[in-house]
Write a protein that binds this DNA or RNA. Structure first.
Lengths: 328, 328
DNA sequence: CTGAAAGCGCTTACAG
DNA sequence: CTGAAAGCGCTTACAG
């Protein structure tokens, strides 16, 4: 279990450097290769990662910084990254920041100090401090979920998602619409989804759209409900995330409303739970796992110095379910 | 950014070994310490982890093997582990096996080869292969979620959870009861919860309890629904996990049943989603995050060679919500 | 308290 | 294709 390259070399009757070359896919004579292969398989030898990394000054570890662990989007993205990385013999190191932006910055430096091959950041906001860290650290960085002109990024097509949903809402004859968004600090969720939706709704001069804002939490959305109903009395509430939609749905059901007859609700995300509940929620699905795989691929190409497009956009899909009433 | 201990030593006018001693909390003269401290803070020096680990032959990394990433229980447990580990200056390395038992075994060996300080395994089953791996690997191993006499383990009080729920069901006057469990290969979920429940129900000679079995998936539970209703027509379905309860709830609602008036439903777990939906689900809550913290603490004590109780049992709590009708 | 030296297990030019 | 040697950046006895 704890052999060294020297012992393997001795057993195979060759030099350490030859074993090393074999291990790293260098050219080795057929006889030699056979001998080494046999010894390695007999002993179950595994090279010491630390020694290897110390000398090679780089690792095959890719760090992924996540804002939180207990989120559908995070989990699915991580699964995608992990699978792809595993196939390419890279290893995933997850760093959780618990939604603390400062810890996010720290993590960037920490990972870099660990001589990690690259950093994937599941981003919510990109501040100047982020950009500064990316500069200082000489490790490739890939943003997922948000874009920045100073970085390589992979985003979901939030704007398109907004447009799809806007068209769908219109097509179902809704005129009195509430859009329940989030802070514009989050460009992807707070700005782009809204902008896309807005753009689609403009087609219909006849519609009455009113904006509201809440946090990302289910509870806050639930509490926001009466305000929306009182101020606007919409036939549909379009929520910027599925979690918000869940909160609104709960509030509506508590109030005894029948969904979608009395009120329609939509979300964004395509979280698993939106299908499990009743009524299931109509939403625009993001492909988090696919995005994770794409991110891993992009990162590997970045590491290998291949040319990589600055921005990758992951696809979205309208998922029609039970929470929207057709008023046509 | 890329200084070595040698450069620091030169700048501080001392020997490398002195800097090393300083770094590792050894005894250093006051003057010397001051000089070294200043140089380190000026240069932003961070020791090379690989060199350190290579020499020290151990790391401060603790590997956690998880069956899946996209699960509430996993996420919460990981958060608990991560937080506690961070406080103690250990690092968490997560290894996902996608519910592949073979990959689980592989992961044990892999982590051990990476000279990890300890392995925490979020277990679903403990096979002979597992035990063999634990033997071979000379790294402390901690099981979470399942117990084994051959290992240190931390479990949730599944049996107590079953008892609590059984008493609750009885107290609410239910007599015609369906218990929807899972495979007995999973001792914690498949055997103990059921056993506890059974034990509590036995108090009431008058009750009519029938067992059913399904997988862990929401969808399978949904499909199982009609069979249960047809065969047993219970007033309550007790589900071995919250996810199963979710599946049953969905099926019941689709069939137009009113919950809990027409049918009561309970789960186990206390997943966040069971509170978000309507009606919210009565369940027994496990404290995954707490358990994670406990696990981390236990692991650290194991690493430090302190005496550690073989088995730790994490507490549970009955959460009464809206999905059970009182028939008394 | 401090320093010089050896060594952890690899990889990487450099010769041959 | 193969080997001897140096060195990656630390830590650890061992002297002093």
């Amino acid at each position: 279990m704890n052999m060294t390259i020297g012992e393997i070399a001795k057993l195979a009757g060759v030099a350490k450097s030859t074993v090393s070359r074999f291990l790293n896919g260098g050219s080795v004579g057929k006889e030699t290769r056979l001998k080494i292969e046999r010894v390695i398989s007999e002993t179950g030898y595994v090279p010491n990662t630390f020694a290897r990394s110390l000398k090679a000054k780089k690792t095959n570890i890719i760090g992924t910084i996540v804002p939180r662990l207990n989120s559908y989007a995070t989990a699915e993205t991580l699964i995608g990254i992990d699978e792809r990385l595993r196939e390419e013999n890279y290893q995933l190191l997850i760093s959780n920041t618990s939604q603390d932006l400062e810890r996010e910055i720290e993590s960037i430096y920490n990972l870099a100090n660990q001589k990690i091959a690259g950093i994937i950041l599941l981003a919510t906001q990109v501040t100047d401090q982020h950009l500064e860290a990316f500069e200082k650290v000489d490790v490739p960085v890939l943003l997922v979920g948000q874009e920045s002109e100073h970085c390589y990024s992979l985003i979901h097509n939030d704007e398109e998602a907004g447009i799809l949903l806007g068209k769908y809402v219109l097509a179902n004859g809704h005129k009195k619409i509430a859009y329940l968004g989030v802070t514009e600090k989050d460009i992807a969720v707070g700005v782009k989804r809204k902008r896309g939706f807005q753009q689609a709704i403009k087609e219909e001069s006849n519609s009455d759209l009113m904006y509201f804002e809440t946090s990302f939490s289910v509870k806050d959305a639930t509490e926001k409900f009466s305000e929306i109903v009182d101020q606007h009395a919409p036939t549909i509430i379009v929520c910027a995330t599925d979690n918000i939609a869940l909160g609104i749905l709960k509030a509506a059901q508590i109030r005894g409303l029948s969904i979608p007859t009395d009120l329609s609700i939509t979300g964004f995300g395509g979280y698993e739970v939106t299908e499990i509940i009743h009524p299931s929620i109509t939403t625009v699905k993001f492909f988090y796992k696919d995005a994770g795989e794409l991110a891993a691929e992009k990162m590997i190409r970045l590491i290998n110095g291949e040319t990589v497009e600055k921005l990758t956009v992951s696809h979205v899909e309208m998922i029609e379910r039970e929470s929207v009433d057709n008023r046509m």
